[in-house]
């Protein structure tokens, strides 16, 4: 299965940029993280922390109709790089089917071409975000299946 179309576009958009403009593009995405819905704002206990990120970073996923995935991120403004990753994943994955999200290669971020501007240890943060996000989706898909069987 292919990557969700919007995520694929974002990856190509980064890859086409000269290296010195990729950071600017990431900064742009850091400004596009949607605010948390009211039920999650200030409720980090209802979200999962990603300790691989070096700053407090939290995520929550929800499964809607037709197995469409909604993802919420809580990342502090003083960590624009991590917020930028959140912005990419938010825009690239929100509304995609669960199966599409699970099919995103874990190393997709290497195609963004950020390795020359961001250190490898920091880039692992984005891999960790995706890994934890997928794990949540798997848990929810399994829970749905269980419920369907009981019905």
């Amino acid at each position: 299965m292919a990557m969700p179309a919007r995520l694929q576009e974002i990856v190509e958009e980064f890859a086409d940029l000269p290296v010195e403009l990729r950071l600017e593009a990431l900064l742009d995405y850091s400004r596009r993280v949607p605010p948390l819905p009211e039920r999650l704002a200030g409720h980090r206990d209802a979200m999962e922390q990603v300790p691989e990120c070096q700053t407090p970073f939290f995520l929550a996923t929800e499964l809607g109709d037709g197995d469409r995935v909604t993802i919420h991120f809580d990342a502090p403004p003083e960590a624009p790089t991590t917020r930028g990753f959140a912005g990419i994943l938010s825009e690239g994955l929100n509304g995609a089917a669960a199966a599409e999200v699970l099919a995103v290669p874990n190393g997709f971020y290497t195609a963004l071409g950020l390795d020359r501007v961001i250190s490898p240890l920091r880039l692992r943060g984005i891999a960790a975000i995706l890994g934890r996000l997928k794990r949540q989706v798997v848990v929810q898909v399994e829970a749905e299946k269980g419920q369907a069987r009981r019905r």
Partner: peptide
């Protein structure tokens, strides 16, 4: 900085 984008903000 640790965060490579912070200066730009």
């Amino acid at each position: 900085d640790e965060d490579v984008l912070l200066y730009e903000t």
